[in-house]
Design a protein around this nucleic acid. Structure first.
Lengths: 363, 363
DNA sequence: CCGCATCTTGAGAGCGTTCTCAAGACTTGT
DNA sequence: ACAAGTCTTGAGAACGCTCTCAAGATGCGG
């Protein structure tokens, strides 16, 4: 019973194949200068014995740890966590990250960091010391956290900043927020809308600004106004309710709203319903994020799809490919797409298609 | 520039504190037999230098790896993955798992395994060899996968089976599916419902059966029928639509449906809407899972809340506490709660309250 | 105040890899 | 056929920690 299965080590393989440890190591790591014949022999032994190198041992001797650490936001309590509803960031990250990592023989680990905590540095520092990851992936809002980026730079650990295009250390990746907002806005203009509002995210997030920029640019290009058509929320549901009400109160002629998060847009949907506005016939809605919840509202929301999985995947690739060097400052942009569902339609006919610069509101 | 920051090792601490490596190690690991005075001195050095032991090195020498591996299902493509909508399993697991792990100085890693793949064994085996985790957490549908449980038992790695109460190796944990279903059903009976149907999950999942059991038991206890009131789905949306239609076609007097997944229940909601049935006034709905999507339907769904985070947390604790021994066969049951939202109400008055014995419907 | 048990500390080996460096086998140019 | 490479292979140290075991310090009963 419970006969202890000894782990297969590189030594067992070496013996089995009748070569030295070093040769096996070379074969495993695809090193050069091994005669094909020998290589095959070693490979056969590896397969037969089912040898897989120990990550820990590799880390010990080699210069790499084969670990990529992804830093995610942590809510303080379970309740907070659940309240984040619909945030499938972690799911997406894992899909993109784990798969890409394993393709390169790497592993991804997730670290949950509390932004509000005073000891972010200590927490993160401990994780870095324990794991000694070859690369770190920062997600918003950590991507632009000075404390964190500095710590990483100091320790000379390559890292990717998702959702940040600021200069400075670390590889910046964005999901094309400006163009996505531009795309969404343009689509609405195309449908005939002339009063298009935006509920933006909080200013601490750079991407909030980018989205506003894209929205404004599309409006400007079409010669449409944007004064008073902007409200700021915090990505949460309640703030969306507030913003949508303010917008609708202020502009009777509003026919479309772009929300900077699924929650805020869902809130706008609710506000519209309360006021007897039919979506999309009276009011068109476009959301940002495209998390799963948005497919189950009534109607399902047209949304800008954040390519999180792919972005993380790209980040992993960059971290693995570039060594500690790579001061290449180019921002990597993974474009977001627009998923059209049923919350967008042409504006109500009562809203005359221009000529009357300003729509007369709805009956 | 880029001065390479040397990692702080146990040796540095030993030197700083003027003691041997061994003593530092003992202090770090809370070993006994160290004079308080010395311990404090060492602790001071540790803090000053910011020493954190390297996981890899600990694994190398010690008998433990301080790694818990969580096995999750992997969909083959990004599209499949996204289609799982609303499944925040991974999020929940991480919350429960990572936090609990770090409390004990452990780390959690996630491995994505494709159930449909032929080489599950090879994939998993490789992960086990590379990581040498101290424990493994299996989630449905892997919890009852013979190939996997055997592999683990063979390698003598402690593991937890979430959503399985079968005998055999591994620590079984359930989320009280039987009693949760019983609770949900009882609640409906209490409200006055007499025709309560269930859309069950696929039979490959044990929990599908448990939920049916709980539903039947509550019905039996109240002397209510269950013939023809059961439909089976696959947890997916489409199957829910099919099942709800069948149920509603068959029983004009149906006033409540319990769905074994959020998706299926959401589908039932849609079917009801299509038929002009108002939820909850004409039809009450209770869902299983309580993933975030369920809070944004119209109306928000009353749902059985799967305590995934807590279950995983318990699993981690068990794995860490028990050594390789622990053949304690007791099933650990983390009870699920019922979150009442707005999809449940007394049945319409037209549904006669029967000879009284049973709830009088609503006023 | 001695002898023995117990507590405290340290020395050295070992974990499974990769790294560095050197030695032998093969080429190649003349 | 010989010197000077280049390829191929292996030996041994090193990585940072914990384990085992032994030695010194301390405590206690008589």
């Amino acid at each position: 019973m419970a006969r202890v299965r000894k782990t297969v080590t590189i030594r067992d393989v070496a013996e089995d194949a009748g070569v030295s440890l070093q040769t096996v190591s070379r074969v495993v790591n695809g090193g050069p200068n091994v005669r094909p014949q020998l290589r095959d022999k070693v490979r056969a032994s590896i397969d037969r014995l089912g040898y897989v190198p120990s990550l820990a041992a590799q880390r010990m001797s080699g210069s790499r740890s084969y670990i990529i650490l992804a830093i995610n936001d942590r809510e303080r309590t379970l309740a907070d966590w659940r309240a984040r509803l619909g945030t499938d960031w972690v799911d997406q990250m894992l899909l993109g990250g784990i798969l890409t990592c394993s393709q390169h023989g790497y592993r991804m680990m997730v670290e949950l960091v509390d932004t509000h905590s005073d000891h972010v540095e200590r927490e993160l520092g401990a994780a870095l010391s324990a794991l000694q990851p070859d690369g770190v992936i920062l997600t918003p809002p950590h991507s632009e956290n000075r404390l964190i980026t500095q710590l990483l730079a100091e320790r000379n650990i390559p890292f990717a900043r998702i959702g940040s295009n600021a200069p400075g250390p670390g590889i910046p990746l964005t999901m094309g927020d400006e163009s996505a907002a531009h795309l969404a806005t343009s689509r609405l203009i195309e449908l005939g809308h002339r009063r298009i509002a935006m509920i933006a995210g909080p200013p601490q997030y750079s991407l909030s600004g980018w989205r506003i920029d894209g929205w404004k640019r599309a409006l400007d290009e079409a010669g449409l106004p944007h004064d008073g058509l902007l409200e700021v929320g915090d990505f949460g549901y309640a703030s969306g309710t507030r913003a949508a009400r303010a917008l609708l109160d202020r502009h009777a002629d509003l026919t479309a709203i772009i929300g900077s998060s699924d929650q805020m847009t869902l809130a706008a949907l609710e506000v519209a319903r309360d006021r007897g506005l039919s979506v999309p016939h009276d009011l068109s809605l476009i959301s940002f994020d495209n998390t799963p919840i948005v497919r189950f509202s009534q109607p399902p929301l047209t949304a800008v799809d954040q390519p999180i999985a792919e972005t993380v995947s790209r980040a992993v690739e960059q971290l693995i490919a570039r060594g500690p060097d790579g001061d290449d400052d180019a921002v990597i942009e993974v474009p977001a797409g627009l998923v059209e569902r049923y919350s967008t339609a042409p504006p109500p006919v009562e809203a005359p298609a221009q000529a009357q610069a300003h729509a007369p509101g709805r009956a």
